[in-house]
Design a protein around this nucleic acid. Structure first.
Length: 558
RNA sequence: GCGCCCAUAGCUCAGUGGAUAGAGCGCCGGACUACGAAUCCGUAGGUCGGGUGUUCGAAUCACCCUGGGCGCACCA
């Protein structure tokens, strides 16, 4: 609907230019239509006359008047058009036109809300990518939810999307993991020795050591220490990664590809990239280490790629990894990281530019941390001691739907207090059920209607006469906004817009439903019932589609 | 000290440079003989942290200050 009006304005503008009533301006102004907050200001409004006034050397009102004179409403969409306030042009859509939205929702059904804005473009989203050195925690869960819905939203808007998990299965942390497990293993055999200072403290390390002991008996003691540590590292990383995959499966998060860091070393890619950059003097040697000139790309200081001891840093493989991504010809490459990695952004984007790729094609979304709360009180966690609540535990306690919904209910840019008590509450404090309840309620209405003989709910020319209460028109107007919400959340990469919209639609429906004397859907009036069933069925379609984007179930019964 | 993010109702948060800044929760008061009360209706609540600027117009953009979060390794 909005696009249609924008198109009319564009035509009017062109017509005014052709007639010489307005002077051409460069660049041609972009037409922005807004939905006013106040009903008296119409269904749509544009500030185009105000933005053009200065270059036209006329008052905004004059410009507005000229545009309006040239606007040809060939489809009879408008019931009224006016210049208002400082120079807004307000458009009032004729009531009959809104019913087309209702038909569109039914006709497009599962496709309602999808669009083609991203058509022909490919996007890669890398997210979670937690090191296989410990189980996923709530913070990873939030990243997983954000990445998953963002991928869904981009797909819905026509992009070709590939989801990827980058596995850091080599390097120092993996070695430390091996050392930690080996120490615990030896402790189980009665040896007294301590974890290394930077070792992993969590109890899961002891569990792994026990499994290892059951499996290998005392065999590791016969190996040279290095070999034993490597063995432990590989064993532990494999087990932990399997656990991570299991947890993500349970959370209904899936990846198209699991990309192993080690493969970049095995194929020689890392070594080759480093050599190339050395040849181009982007990497240089100082005090025995190899440094990347990230400072030339806006970083605070140059960064080490290969340490003096000859061991590569993670940055080295990350350069090779991102080069690989760009070589796979994605139009856009999106990384989703925890906000605590923000110091790393400039480094990676510097390397991408140094490799000759357009930095605008690369974006990092920094997801702020999650504070776990129970009934308003913070849940104490000590990361140092390895005592934290895992994603698995959270999902088991509150359920997948609640977890996902609450993770997505904030802008990823703002820290999230995740309240375990609230997430489980079956009351109006909990927004998850509020939205799901709409789906269940409407499903129930449709079931009841079917029992009473309403089989095929389809459009009838009578509907405009039957669905005409202001609150019904209001519901239709809200439904008309849904596709635009999806597009906006895709373009701005702001998934939280979906649950916010759904909450609003749910609120409007609950209010409508509740005034049952006035709005009873299934009544003795057969024609009216048919019309209202058509209306609520459309709402159900949108709620279902929106929840599907979020990966939240749409129950028929609760 | 330097960098990134943030500051909006009592709390948690929305808000595309536009007209009179919104919602949920909480408080208080109400609503089931009904298609599901996991719901609804009503009241109250604001110096958009402070300041200066840009503009026809600022919660939104720029700069400064204050207060908070997170980073600042030859860790990631």
């Amino acid at each position: 609907m909005k696009e249609k009006i924008a198109f009319l304005v564009k035509q009017a503008l062109e017509s005014a230019l052709a007639a010489g009533d307005l002077q051409p301006v460069d660049p041609s102004p972009s037409i922005i239509l807004q939905t006013p907050k106040i009903a008296e200001h119409g269904d749509f409004t544009t500030n185009i006359a105000m933005t053009m006034a200065a270059s036209q050397k006329r008052s905004p009102q004059e410009v507005a008047r000229i545009i309006m004179d040239h606007l040809e409403d060939s489809d009879h969409m408008l019931s009224k058009m006016e210049v208002a306030g400082p120079g807004f042009i307000n458009f009032f859509i004729t009531r009959r036109k809104w019913y087309e939205v209702l038909r569109t929702v039914h006709d497009e059904d599962k496709a309602y809300g999808t669009s083609e804005v991203g058509r022909g473009k490919t996007v890669q989203i890398e997210f979670v990518s937690a090191n296989p050195t410990g189980p996923l925690h709530v913070g990873h869960g939030r990243c997983a939810a954000v990445g998953e819905i963002l991928a869904a939203i981009l797909k819905a808007t026509g992009y070709e999307v590939e989801k990827e998990y980058y596995v850091n299965d080599s390097g120092r942390q993996i070695r430390t993991l091996g050392e930690s497990v080996f120490v615990r293993y030896q402790q189980l055999l009665g040896k007294t020795l301590d974890l290394p200072a930077d070792g992993y403290q969590g109890s899961y390390i002891k569990d792994l050591a026990r499994i290892l002991l059951d499996q290998e008996r005392e065999g590791l003691l016969d190996m040279p220490e290095e070999e034993a540590i490597t063995f432990c590292a590989k064993f532990a990383a494999k087990k932990i990664l399997a656990g991570i995959r299991e947890d993500l499966n349970a959370f209904h998060v899936s990846f198209d590809r699991w990309f192993c860091e080690q493969s970049l070393y095995n194929s020689g890619t890392v070594q080759k990239v480093i050599q190339d950059l050395k040849d181009r003097d982007i990497i240089y040697e100082d005090e025995g280490a190899l440094w990347f000139r990230t400072r030339d790309f806006g970083d605070e200081k140059d960064r080490v790629v290969v340490r003096a001891n000859g061991v590569e840093t993670y940055f080295a493989s990350d350069i090779a990894y991102h080069k690989d991504k760009f070589e796979r010809k994605f139009d856009r490459v999106i990384d989703i990281w925890g906000a605590d990695h923000h110091g790393y952004v400039r480094r990676v984007s510097a390397s991408i530019q140094a490799l000759g790729y357009d930095g605008d094609r690369f974006q990092v979304l920094l997801v702020q941390l999650v504070n776990l709360v129970r009934d308003g009180k913070p849940v104490t966690m000590s990361t140092r001691a390895g005592e934290f609540v895992t994603l698995k535990e959270v999902i088991e306690e509150v359920g997948r739907d609640a977890a996902r919904f609450l993770f997505l209910l904030r802008h990823y840019d703002s820290p999230l207090d995740f309240d375990l008590g609230l997430a489980k509450k079956e009351s109006n404090e909990n927004p998850v059920y509020y939205v799901q309840y709409v789906h269940a309620r409407i499903s129930n209405i449709l079931k009841k209607a079917e029992e009473r003989g309403y089989k095929d709910i389809c459009w009838d020319e009578d509907f405009p006469e039957l669905i005409n209460l202001p609150e019904e028109i209001q519901l239709i107007k809200l439904m008309a906004q849904y596709p635009e919400v999806v597009v906006q959340s895709a373009l701005l990469m702001e998934p939280h817009r979906i649950p916010f919209y759904l909450k609003e639609l749910a609120g409007a429906f609950h209010a409508y439903y509740h005034d049952r004397n006035k709005h009873k859907v299934v009544s003795d009036d057969v024609r009216l019932s048919g019309a209202r069933l058509y209306l609520v069925a459309a709402i159900r379609i949108i709620v279902r589609n929106g929840l599907a984007l979020m990966g939240v179930s749409a129950p028929e019964m609760m």
